[in-house]
Structure formats: C-alpha cells, structure tokens
Computed example of a mutant assay.
Amino acid sequence: MTPDHRTAVMGILNITPDSFSDGGRFQSTEQAFRGVKRMAAQGADLIDLGAQSTRPGATDVGAEVEIERLLPVLKRLQQARRDGDLPAELLFSIDTFLAPVADACLDAGADWINDVSGGLGDRQMWQVVAEHRCPYVLMHRRGDARTMNSLAHYSDVVAEVKAELLQLCEQAQQAGVQRQQLVLDPGIGFAKTTQHNLELMQGLPQLQALGYPLLVGTSRKRFIGEVLNEPRPHARLWGTAASVCQAVAAGVAVVRVHDVGPIVQTCRMAEALFKPNAASRAPQTLA
C-alpha cells in the first residue's frame, strides 16, 4: 500500500431496526438488494453488511439473529454478482464481532470481516479470520456499546489508540492472522469524545505510519453534529465530506460511508488535490 493508491469507498448497509441513522430502511432482502445496487451504481468498491447496531447503548441481538438477518441478503447479493446484476468486482464485508457470524458468512461467500471490537468481543474471531485468510478490519474500541462512553479518557488519544491497535495486531498475529490480512480502524466515535475524534483525524498520518492499511468511518457521526450544531444525522453530509478529505490527504485506504455517491466524488476530487498520482484502481488490500 502506498499513498498514491486510490481511496476505496465502503458503502454501509444496516439490516437492523435500530442503527443510529438508517435503522429500518433495509428490512427485507429486496430492499437490501436495491440499496446495494444503488450504491454500486454510485461507485462503491465494497458494501459493509451489518445486522447488529453498534451505536452507544445498543443491545446485542446474538449470533443466531445476526445470521438469520445476514445470510438471505448475502445469498441474494452473491447471486446478483454472479448474474451480472452487480459488478463482479464488488466486495461484501460483514460488520460483526461474533465468530460464528463471521464463519457462517465467510462460508456463504463474504469477502471481508469488519470487527468493531478488534477481536475482543469474541476471542474465537481471530481463529476464524486466520482460517479463511480474508481481509480483517481491526477497530479500536474500549468496552462495548453499553460501556464505551464511560471509557473515553486519554492523556494522548493518538498515542494511546496507536499503542492499543499495535497490541491487538500482535495478538491477532499470534493467533494466526497474517499481517497482510489486517486493516486498522481508529474507531472514530467509539469510546471517544468530539475532541478525541478531531485529534485522531488530525493524527491520521501518525497512524498511517504504522504500515497497515487504514479504514476510517466518520459518516454522519455525532462529533460532526456537535461541531456543526446539527442534530440530524442525515444532514451531516458536508461535515462527513470534509472529514473524508482529511482521510484522503492522509493516505487512508478505505472510507466507510452512508452517502456513497457524493463521497465517491469527494474522494476523487480530494485525490486530484492531495494525491495527483493516485492509481485509477482500488487499493491492493482489496484484491
């Protein structure tokens, strides 16, 4: 991975009734398929499928419910990809911190695992990822959805997130995950205050220097609303776009967003400004 590679766009598809900004939009398999088809047409490189809300205070639904929600949608998307109704190069990521969910979805053809717990939510996750040899997004978070807000205490948030991510990387590799499988996510909005999130965004070059591809997810998040005095998540597009420009300038490999069309344009323009030698293809980590 080099700073010249194009920043990939991961579109968010929450198959949940309670996600913070789009819960309930994609309850049926066909609604989900139409949402994915729209994001693919807008230029998404990956689609991140989630069946468990990770917003602060969310209740865990358990592996069985996640699998029941995810597999019909994943199978429909796989069929559409085979039939040419979706681009052959479109990749499917599963947003889960439970090893049985990851295993079932990878067996069903998912390409990536995106784990907001960084492996701490289920200690079997690393073994599953190692066995499947798939890309694995390892995110920084303290606590869980119910406790993380109370754990947002840092002396130097960039240095501490960096150190905690490196520790998790070492543990994952000891469990059999290969270094080249790892994509790191600083966990914007997870156990961080608005000021912490801003400092992390400003410190992305320090995290980039770790040598792992980075994924950053700022889309519609509360810190943007607090900076802009905008309580409506759907109205935070331009704040999201500004944060994506910062991510592109720092060489981030993937941005995870709700509003795919506008953010694809934002990325391409930001690359023309900050990374004029950016390749037209997606980052090597997507292969």
Rank of each mutant, 00 (worst) to 15 (best):
G121I: 01
Q124C: 10
L77I: 07
Q208E: 12
A209C: 07
H196S: 10
I12R: 04
L286Y: 02
V137I: 14
G143K: 01
A110R: 01
I263N: 06
W126V: 00
R82D: 13
G11P: 05
D111C: 12
F20L: 10
A247M: 11
Q180P: 00
Y136Q: 04
E164A: 15
N229R: 14
L151V: 04
V101W: 01
L13R: 00
R123H: 14
K75L: 13
S28Y: 12
Q127W: 02
V248M: 05
R142C: 00
G211S: 13
V61K: 05
T240Y: 10
T7R: 02
N114K: 10
V260W: 00
A278S: 15
P87R: 10
V177T: 05
G143E: 00
Y154E: 07
R55G: 04
N229E: 15
A40N: 05
Y212C: 08
Q180G: 08
E199R: 15
G187E: 08
E226V: 10
A8T: 05
T96G: 03
Q79E: 13
N114D: 13
F190V: 04
G239R: 03
G203Y: 06
A270W: 00
Y136D: 02
L200P: 02
S219P: 12
M201A: 14
I188S: 01
H132G: 08
M39F: 07
L120C: 11
V264W: 02
D48N: 11
I113N: 00
P233R: 09
A44F: 02
P262V: 14
P56Y: 09
I94N: 03
L168D: 07
N114T: 13
D60W: 01
I94S: 06
G43K: 01
E131I: 00
S243Q: 09
A250T: 07
V254C: 03
W238F: 15
I263P: 01
P135V: 03
P100V: 11
Q31G: 00
R55H: 10
M148V: 05
W238M: 13
A108C: 10
L13N: 00
S155P: 01
R76E: 10
A110H: 07
S21A: 13
D22I: 08
K275R: 15
D83C: 06
D103P: 03
D85S: 14
L207F: 09
H196W: 11
I12W: 03
E66D: 12
L77N: 06
R82Y: 09
P283K: 05
K221A: 06
D4W: 09
F190I: 05
D122V: 03
L77V: 09
I94Y: 06
T7G: 05
R38H: 11
M148C: 06
P205G: 11
E199G: 07
Q181P: 04
Q167K: 15
Q202V: 09
S21F: 13
D115Q: 06
S280N: 15
E68V: 09
A104D: 03
V61F: 01
L286F: 05
V157K: 04
L214T: 04
T7A: 06
Y154M: 09
A159M: 11
T2N: 14
D95E: 10
S280D: 15
